[in-house]
Computed example of a mutant assay.
Amino acid sequence: METHEAIIDMETFQAVQAEKERRAKRFNKKPASRTTYPFSGLLLCDNCGKNYRRKVTATDPVWIYGTFNTLGKSACASKQIPETMLQQVTADVLG
């Protein structure tokens, strides 16, 4: 539909479209795939019901949920759980 006069000429429009495509190929990277672990999506905080996530600390991996990790004890009194403890309890329960 040619309802009004073009603001820019077709050659400029095509050049801009080509530049947009070139930049998209260069800068739009695929997002990193999320790593899942044996306890991913299975642990919930008793206090607020939020999911725990895995965090690697200087000593060992622990499971902690984001609210406590970012806002601290004032947001929720839940504690982090060492991954080795989770693995041991799981092994004991499963035999």
Rank of each mutant, 00 (worst) to 15 (best):
T12D: 12
L94N: 12
T70R: 12
E19K: 15
F27H: 08
V93R: 13
E19G: 02
A6T: 12
P82I: 02
C48M: 02
Y37S: 10
T12C: 01
P38D: 08
G95H: 10
K29E: 10
P82H: 07
L44K: 15
E21I: 00
E11D: 10
S74L: 04
R22A: 11
K79G: 03
S78G: 14
A77V: 05
L71Q: 14
R26E: 15
R22V: 04
Q17S: 09
K55Q: 06
T57W: 14
G49D: 05
E21Y: 01
Q80S: 15
E11T: 09
V56W: 08
T90L: 15
H4N: 12
E19L: 15
Y52G: 01
C76Q: 04
K50S: 11
Q87I: 08
D46H: 08
V89R: 09
K29H: 10
Q88T: 09
Y65S: 01
T84W: 13
L94T: 15
I8R: 03
Y65E: 02
Y65K: 12
Q80Y: 11
A6I: 11
K55H: 12
C45S: 09
S33V: 15
E83N: 09
L44A: 09
V56R: 14
C48D: 10
T70G: 00
Q14P: 00
I7V: 13
A18T: 02
P61S: 08
L42H: 04
H4W: 03
G66P: 00
K25T: 04
N51K: 07
T90M: 06
K20A: 12
